[in-house]
């Protein structure tokens, strides 16, 4: 993404935002809720059109592409949506094999084999005939990961993958993301869950007031003196948390 801007109803969501995905690297975009993190994923996927700037995938600018051309570009990308976005009317197996059925290149038997393989990767092969409504939140996200993996894309995006999950669910998702890293996939995650971000990512971008406020590693981020970064990291920094609490108490008392 090069100098990308996007606004909705007069509200600037992104203002000359830059992002570069290094092949094989796990990157996380951090930011407050409602900062526009998901918008970044939707722009890269061509689900939204930017107002300014250029978005290129594998060197191909996607700005002027039609929906039909975008379908070709998206073949190498998959996304795990925040709520899973599994198709209600299809079974888990049909969801996971959806893209392969759509492409029509493989036989049904071959698709079934891949579906089982991907479901066993996320530990849910026994759910193949269930419908999404019969799954828990964490299981839905794992099925969504299996669906994302089915067509073996090079890029996988995660939109708030751990939101709303219990600690075991969070651990399972983190574990799966690390396994994907081991397979050489390039992943981009947007989240405000710092624990997951630091557990699975090597590079971080911080979105603040529609702009890229920071870009770097975990250590660089923790050393960064920008007040917005300090404020965002405060809940994970116990000393800073105590300081803030004391400070708040003092202010209140005063």
């Amino acid at each position: 993404m090069d100098q990308v801007s996007y606004a909705v109803g007069g509200r600037q969501i992104l203002d000359r935002f830059d992002l570069f995905l290094e092949p094989g690297v796990n990157r996380t975009i951090l930011g407050m809720s409602g900062a526009g993190k998901t918008t970044i994923l939707r722009l890269i996927l061509g689900l939204l059109r930017p107002e300014g700037g250029t978005i290129s995938i594998d060197g191909v600018p996607i700005g002027g592409l039609s929906e039909r051309e975008l379908i070709q570009v998206r073949k190498n990308i998959a996304i795990v949506f925040q709520g899973g976005a599994l198709f209600d009317s299809m079974t888990v197996g049909e969801n996971v094999g959806y893209r392969l059925f759509e492409e029509g290149r493989l036989s049904e038997k071959e698709i079934e084999r891949i579906v089982l393989e991907k479901l066993s990767f996320v530990g849910l092969e026994q759910t193949i005939d269930l419908y999404p409504a019969e799954l828990s939140g964490g299981m839905k996200k794992r099925v969504a990961i299996a669906r994302a993996l089915a067509a073996d894309p090079d890029y996988i995006f995660f939109d708030e993958p751990t939101t709303g999950l219990d600690p075991i669910g969070v651990f399972n998702i983190q574990h799966l993301m690390l396994r994907l890293q081991g397979e050489g996939k390039t992943t981009l995650m947007v989240t405000h869950d710092l624990e997951t971000a630091f557990a699975v990512s090597r590079r971080f971008s911080f979105l603040y007031h529609a702009r890229l406020a920071f870009e770097g590693t975990e250590e660089e981020m923790k050393r960064c003196e920008l007040p917005e970064i300090r404020e965002f990291l405060a809940p994970t920094d116990r000393s800073l948390f105590r300081y803030t609490t004391n400070n708040h108490t003092e202010t209140t008392t005063t």
Binding site: L47, R74, I79, A85, E102
Partner: peptide, 8 residues
């Protein structure tokens, strides 16, 4: 959106 991303 998921359908669009999946190539439909």
């Amino acid at each position: 959106d998921a359908m669009r991303v999946e190539g439909t």
